[in-house]
């Protein structure tokens, strides 16, 4: 194993992120995307939804770096604004899943017994669905929009967090410090929240990192299917789907959003993989 190089004094960058230079690039890309998306209203960009009839389907050129789409909207600024929605929805959904999964897993692992059995059979039940079909089902009942996508993603996503946290709680529960806490008279709630919960947080955060790429991909698929953010709001998935008809006359309208999406998901997945390797988290459903 090439572990020897770790912590070796090197360039300042390497010293700051020991042995993880490979991880830096994707992290940097993610941070870059994030900052750009947050700052997008401040950047000197075209209005992503402004329809310009005199510049329909313009190929990439100086004033429209990635061209314009079939309604004359600037692809570059739509990608950046779309990133805000795509990344935002994925991150929020991952956060909601983490919180729900964390709470459920904590309670279920700690109390055990019948409660645990019921909760875990719900988790198994949800995991036995093909996740995309389940998300589609959820987005079909609720009116389409970004909140629906978030709910759909979280409805499926919390299960793996719950399972992970529960497993961890089960091992923590039998440790001496829990007995010690009980001996000095701590109540269930206190032991659960003050003694056990903080030890589960790093694990859930790692899992969140592992899952983010998948969340983004599902979000994009749902918007591709028209179940996500509604037009004219740009998302990467819906841009691809809307411009699918023009792949011959204006391929850039499909190429670039897809590229942005693939790069973003790739970076998230890359970071996730590294986290997974480092902390040896098992994904309940790869």
């Amino acid at each position: 194993m090439p572990m020897i190089n770790k912590n070796r004094p090197g360039s300042p960058l390497k010293r700051f992120f020991p042995g993880n230079l490979k991880l830096l690039l994707p992290l940097f890309v993610i941070a870059f995307l994030f900052i750009i998306s947050v700052l997008s209203p401040l950047l000197p960009l075209y209005d992503p939804n402004k329809i310009e009839l005199e510049s329909l389907k313009m190929p990439p050129a100086w004033d429209h770096p990635l061209g314009t789409d079939s309604k004359g909207r600037d692809v570059f600024s739509r990608i950046i604004y779309g990133g805000k929605i795509s990344i935002g929805v994925a991150v929020l959904a991952a956060f909601v899943s983490t919180v729900i999964g964390f709470a459920v897993g904590l309670a279920s692992g700690y109390f055990g017994g019948r409660f645990d059995a019921v909760v875990m059979s719900i988790v198994d039940f949800i995991l036995s669905f093909p996740s995309l079909l389940l998300a589609i089902a959820v987005s079909v009942i609720l009116p389409p929009g970004i909140y629906t996508v978030m709910i759909a993603l979280s409805a499926v996503g919390w299960t793996s967090f719950a399972r992970l946290v529960r497993g961890h709680v089960l091992t923590l529960k039998d440790m001496a410090f829990v007995d010690a806490a009980r001996a000095v008279g701590c109540g269930n709630l206190r032991i659960m929240l003050v003694h056990i919960a903080p030890l589960c947080i790093p694990l859930s955060l790692v899992m969140m990192g592992v899952k983010l790429g998948g969340f983004m991909l599902t979000e994009a698929t749902l918007s591709f299917l028209g179940l996500g953010a509604q037009p004219p709001a740009p998302t990467w998935g819906s841009m691809i789907s809307a411009n699918r008809a023009y792949i011959l006359t204006a391929p850039w309208t499909v190429l670039f959003p897809g590229m942005a999406l693939s790069i973003a998901v790739f970076c998230f997945n890359f970071v996730g993989e590294s986290l997974k390797e480092r902390y040896e988290v098992k994904d309940s459903r790869s």
């Binding site: 790429g213 991909l217 994009a220 698929t221 591709f224 998935g237 691809i240 789907s241 499909v254 897809g258 999406l261 693939s262 998901v265 790739f266 998230f268 997945n269």
Partner: peptide, 8 residues
């Protein structure tokens, strides 16, 4: 391959 969306 895992990151590139199928529709793209």
């Amino acid at each position: 391959g895992l990151s590139i969306p199928v529709f793209w």
